[in-house]
């Protein structure tokens, strides 16, 4: 049974940990930001044109 701290941390592992946590945090933060702005996360698939959330976010850009 190896704890994470005891595991060997080479450059590859560190990059991996940073990349993964950045991605997970990014997705969570993006979802929270959308929620605060009052826009539910958008997943309108094919029809972005139909989707008010997509368009609202485009406008903000």
């Amino acid at each position: 049974m190896t704890s994470l701290l005891c595991a060997s941390l080479g450059a590859g592992e560190i990059v991996l940990i940073i990349a993964c946590s950045a991605l997970v945090l990014g997705v969570i933060v993006a979802a929270i930001v959308r929620r605060i702005k009052g826009k539910p996360s958008c997943d309108c698939g094919e029809c972005c044109g139909l989707c008010e959330h997509c368009n609202a976010s485009k406008k903000n850009k």
């Binding site: 997970v24 997705v27 969570i28 993006a30 309108c44 698939g45 029809c47 972005c48």
Partner: peptide, 23 residues
């Protein structure tokens, strides 16, 4: 239509889905 759909699907695969698999 198809291009929109593909873009969206790939974007989703590499954001929400990738993050969920990691979690």
């Amino acid at each position: 239509h198809l291009w929109d759909k593909t873009k969206h699907f790939i974007k989703k695969a590499f954001t929400v889905i990738l993050a969920s698999t990691i979690v």
